Simulated assay, not measured.
Amino acid sequence: MSKEFTMAEVAKHRSDDSLYLVIDGDVYDVTNFVNEHPGGAKILKRVSGKDASKQFWKYHNEGVLKKYKPQLAIGTVKAEAKL
């Protein structure tokens, strides 16, 4: 999981062929998980391409992240310079 993404790169992955989202600075590829998600595909599609940390922690605990992070995490969000 050494690849770094900008939020602009993550935002490009909002289609049925490629769904990325961010949780606490880590980038997750949920493309192949979307149909397994207990809450349904609709919610993952709604937050894809975005930072979904707030929505994730509202409905999940740390155990969920520990369980799925090894198979879904693909990198981190690159710190962007603020001018």
Rank of each mutant, 00 (worst) to 15 (best):
H13V: 05
H13A: 15
H13N: 15
H13C: 14
R14V: 08
R14F: 00
R14A: 05
R14D: 08
S15L: 05
D16E: 13
D16P: 03
D17H: 12
S18Q: 14
S18N: 15
S18E: 13
L19H: 12
L19I: 08
Y20S: 06
Y20D: 03
L21P: 09
L21M: 13
L21A: 07
L21V: 06
L21Y: 06
V22A: 10
V22R: 07
I23W: 01
I23S: 02
I23C: 00
I23N: 01
I23L: 03
I23R: 01
D24L: 06
D24P: 03
D24N: 15
D26K: 15
D26Y: 09
D26N: 14
V27E: 08
V27P: 04
V27I: 08
Y28C: 05
Y28P: 04
D29I: 02
D29A: 03
D29S: 07
D29V: 02
D29G: 09
D29R: 05
V30P: 08
V30G: 05
V30T: 08
V30E: 04
N32C: 05
F33E: 11
F33N: 11
F33C: 08
F33Q: 12
V34H: 00
N35V: 05
N35E: 14
N35I: 01
H37R: 08
H37C: 04
H37N: 12
P38S: 10
P38W: 07
P38N: 08
P38H: 06
G40E: 10
G40N: 12
G40P: 10
G40C: 09
A41K: 15
I43N: 02
I43K: 01
K45Q: 15
K45R: 15
K45H: 13
R46T: 13
R46E: 13
V47Y: 15
S48A: 15
S48P: 02
G49W: 08
G49K: 04
G49R: 04
G49M: 07
G49S: 12
G49D: 08
K50P: 01
K50A: 13
K50Q: 15
K50F: 07
D51A: 01
D51W: 02
D51V: 00
D51S: 03
D51T: 01
D51L: 00
A52P: 13
A52R: 11
S53C: 06
S53Y: 06
S53F: 04
K54Q: 10
F56M: 03
F56N: 02
F56R: 00
W57M: 05
W57F: 05
W57G: 05
K58S: 10
K58F: 03
K58E: 11
Y59G: 04
Y59S: 13
H60P: 00
H60Q: 04
N61A: 08
E62Q: 14
E62I: 06
E62R: 13
E62C: 00
G63H: 07
G63K: 11
V64N: 07
L65C: 01
L65Y: 11
L65K: 14
K66H: 06
K67D: 05
K67H: 12
K67Y: 09
Y68E: 03
Y68S: 00
K69E: 11
K69M: 10
K69G: 02
P70T: 11
P70I: 07
